[in-house]
Amino acid sequence: MKRIGSFLGALAVSLTATSAFAIDIDSRYQPYQPTTGVSGSLKSIGSDSLNNLMTLWAEGFKAIYPSVKIEIEGKGSSTAPPALIAGTAQIGPMSRPMKAAEIDAFEQKYGYKPTQVRLAVDTLAVFVNKDNPLSCISLTQLDGVFSKSRLSGSPNIVTWGQLGLTGEWASKPISLFGRNSASGTYGYFKEVAMVNGDYKDTVKEQPGSSAVVQGIAADKFAMGYSGIGYKTADVKAVPVAGRDGKCQEANQRNAYTGAYPITRFLYAYVNKNPSTALDPLRGEFLRFVLMQDGQKDTVKDGYYPMPYVFAQEELAKLGLN
């Protein structure tokens, strides 16, 4: 899987005025303009990481089109492809790209591939309790903490002292929280931080990102991972060092330049026949998401807006600009 830096590195020069902490929206984004003929029902099935964001987008869209009904179910990215194939969902949000087998199954039924739409940018954060003094962790150390395979060559890391903490922390075991295997977040963390190794049996797998964060907030000695949009005041995101050894904070600048090593796009997939236009309901919903209104909701939920040029590429792909 290509990481986001290979797509976004060229944008670094455009971020010289961007704060490392504020989340900015490109001034070229224009407000969404309502149109006529938009009605009906949409069902979204897929990523839990996108659950809150899909809800915000749906609420904003329904404020413009009150007769539209939108139902959202977020139980994990792996639930999106079968729902799109079966026709039980019209939008499949995913926190990872579809796998080759999922694309093949879709194409076998419809004769063309599903259409991937990039909607937002996320730094997959490594969270600890707000009282934890840990100031940085490397990908290799994360492999040692979370993986029983340790394919990076890391030693087995089980206590906070092995990460350099002293005093009361030194001998305390690291309590691990993570997502379940239906989650795209589970798979992406496994790929990038664990070199596709296997998770330790001690990882407490949670059905949703908010449950991961709640577990860490309630356990002083816990560590876990989820999308940055689920950060609360009770946890902190630890800077992560990539293979170059440089600690990088999970922020917009580092996401866009690819400096933060666990950065990704958040997607939606739709069933779009290449020879026909999208119906008005799906088309206008995706247009709303990829314009100023939807990207403001992205920021409100704690994720990073799509770089403007990429949003225009997605709209063009859908025949919407």
Rank of each mutant, 00 (worst) to 15 (best):
M1L: 06
S6C: 02
F7G: 01
A10G: 05
A12Q: 13
A12C: 09
T18G: 03
A22Q: 13
P31C: 13
P34V: 13
T35R: 09
T36M: 01
G40C: 06
S44F: 03
I45D: 06
N52F: 03
M54G: 05
A58Y: 03
E59G: 05
K62V: 15
P66Q: 10
V68I: 09
E71C: 08
S78D: 11
S78E: 09
T79E: 10
A80F: 00
P81V: 09
L84E: 08
A89Y: 01
P93R: 13
M94Y: 05
M98T: 13
M98D: 14
K99D: 13
I103E: 15
G111H: 13
K113V: 15
T115S: 11
R118L: 03
L124S: 10
A125E: 06
N132Y: 03
P133S: 11
C136T: 15
I137Q: 03
D143W: 05
K148S: 12
R150V: 09
I157F: 02
V158C: 03
T159A: 01
L163V: 12
L163A: 02
T166L: 02
E168V: 14
W169R: 02
A170V: 11
L176K: 06
F177Y: 15
R179G: 04
S181H: 12
A182Y: 05
Y186D: 12
G187A: 12
Y188L: 14
A193N: 09
Y199L: 00
D201I: 10
D201K: 10
K204C: 04
K204G: 04
Q206P: 00
S209Y: 04
V213P: 00
D219G: 00
A222N: 03
G224M: 09
I228V: 14
I228T: 15
T232M: 05
V238L: 03
V238I: 14
P239S: 15
D244C: 01
C247F: 11
Q248E: 13
Q252N: 12
R253G: 08
A255I: 10
A255C: 10
T257Y: 02
Y260D: 09
I262N: 05
I262H: 02
T263Q: 07
T263N: 08
R264C: 05
F265M: 00
N273H: 11
A277H: 14
L281D: 12
L281P: 06
G283L: 08
L286M: 13
R287Q: 14
Q295N: 12
K296Q: 15
D297G: 03
T298V: 14
D301T: 11
G302D: 12
Y303C: 05
M306C: 07
E314T: 15
A316G: 13
K317G: 09
N321R: 11
N321M: 04
